[in-house]
Design a protein around this nucleic acid. Structure first.
Lengths: 190, 190
DNA sequence: ATCGTTAGGTAGTAGTCAATCACTATCTTT
DNA sequence: AAAGATAGTGATTGACTACTACCTAACGAT
């Protein structure tokens, strides 16, 4: 069959919706992505979205789930391939940067969620994502200290803040320059 | 006169408005601070705001101006008192952290502005603020290299990203924990 | 081929928001 | 004390939002 069917199955629609939101987040403020804008980009009417999601927040929730799964999986994969803890950290860093380069909307959505006042489910997911990420890094650093790869006096929590902060800094620079590719160019130097 | 007059002069109202916005930004998502919420906090009606500002964006613009002036002045003051470039960097770091601790809404507003898609005047001011800040740091680092305080091979731009990124990281941690004081506690360690 | 199920369209509703405007209260100048 | 100027009120407007109810078109199993 060459021609696609006019209707998509529900699961596929949900997937496409999530990807569309991340796509839109790369172009505009995640805070004012409307359901209308999402639907328009998908080539459907606005009301159709609510056949697959009970609310807008449920959409954001699905997005955070998507991000969590993919990002953590990539980090896991990258670190497991590395020989030493230090190498694993570097691999995690580059994997993270690669992920963001592919999906520039992701850090914006994450930060946007964290900014929210109400404790939504989506915000909770963003929080646990970063928390789990931090723990993973903490383990790597502890491991590195044991093997003598890193200074024993190193404060692990501070190091984690530095690690994530550096990525945030790169993202912010890209936000300022409006240029996503610059991230990749600067990353090795840092 | 003990009792205040019922009406405030325009200049004072503008000042209070700006401070109120920063206050609100510390408690909720800057993106959805409404003119109604600002007015309510000030104890005036919503319409009254538009007697002193032509639009909501003009209010945000005034806020960014307020932030720019105060933050840069503090950094300048802190760095000028330091004996060496390295000491100046440390002083700038702590001055910045202090400023954020006093006004937790500031980084949130800054980041919120940078996220916006449209090129508003407020966004431009945020951009130039960070740009000028970065240049100032760059000079300090270059100076430090000359005096041999820092490694000559150090990439200045990367170092600046690290510097600002670290502060961003601390802010994000506070955002996660919902605890502003933690910033100050962790700062020296980093 | 038929019929129940599911995806999507159409056309709304209720609510919120920034901005406006006619009016009133307060202050200042003379 | 009168008059003009300024600060603030309160009601309203129009644009935009998430969400819904009802209907139609396509699908899939028998």
């Amino acid at each position: 069959m060459i021609s696609r069917s006019a209707y998509l199955p529900a699961e596929e629609r949900r997937e496409i919706t999530v990807e569309t939101v991340i796509e839109l987040a790369a172009e505009q403020n995640p805070a004012d992505i409307t359901t209308g804008a999402i639907a328009k980009r998908m080539g459907v009417t606005q009301g159709a979205l609510f056949r697959h999601f009970p609310s807008k927040d449920a959409i954001l929730q699905a997005v955070m789930e998507w991000v969590s799964d993919r990002l953590l999986a990539r980090i896991e994969k990258a670190t497991s391939r590395a020989a030493s803890p230090l190498g694993a950290l570097e691999a995690a860093f580059m994997a993270h940067i690669d992920f963001i380069t592919e999906h520039p909307g992701v850090p914006r959505m994450l930060f946007g969620e964290l900014q929210r006042a109400e404790q939504t489910v989506a915000k909770q997911m963003a929080q646990t994502l970063i928390q789990r990420y931090g723990e993973r890094l903490c383990l790597l650093i502890a491991d590195g200290k044991k093997r003598g790869e890193m200074a024993a006096g190193l404060d692990e929590k501070a190091a984690v803040i530095l690690f994530i902060g550096t990525i945030q800094g790169l993202v912010m620079q890209a936000l300022l320059a409006g240029d996503v590719k610059r991230i990749r160019a600067n990353a090795p130097g840092v």
